[in-house]
Each structure stands twice: as C-alpha cells, then as structure tokens.
C-alpha cells in the first residue's frame, strides 16, 4: 500500500511532462507566441495536468478498493 502513492506520483509526473511537451509543440506552431508565453504556459499546463493525473489515479485506486470490498 505504501508504494501506491509513489507509483501514482511517478505516473502523474510522467503524464504531466507529456502534456507539457504537447502544449509546447502546439504553442510553437501558433503564430505570434513569444518564448516566455510558451514557458509560462508549459509550467502551468504541467502543474494542472499533474494534479489532474494524481486525482484520477486516486479515483482509480478508490474504485479498485470499492470493487474488492464487494
């Protein structure tokens, strides 16, 4: 059980990194966007995606536990 949060943490970090790169890719292809906008945006996307991924992982874990109980 102790390893679960660590595992979710790493998965969430990875997913957040992937989303940030996707954002950077999309932003770089947009006209008129400055470098700093891309950096700030990427950081923000990383933070939000990380929290979303972590929450989803928690929901998933809860669902698994509920299933086991029944």
């Amino acid at each position: 059980m102790k390893n679960a949060p660590k595992k979710f943490f790493i998965i969430s970090l990875t997913l957040a990194a992937v989303f940030s790169f996707l954002f950077i890719f999309a932003a770089e292809n947009k006209e008129g966007v400055e470098k700093f906008d891309i950096y700030l945006g990427a950081v923000w996307v990383f933070i939000l995606s990380f929290i979303i991924a972590l929450s989803l992982a928690h929901l998933f874990k809860k669902g698994e536990q509920d299933k086991k109980k029944f």
């Binding site: 906008d37 700030l40 923000w44």
Partner: peptide, 8 residues
C-alpha cells in the same frame, strides 16, 4: 498583458 499571463 501577454497571452500566457492573461490565460493563467
């Protein structure tokens, strides 16, 4: 306000 700051 730059686009990134506005959106954040």
């Amino acid at each position: 306000v730059p686009v990134s700051v506005f959106a954040v």
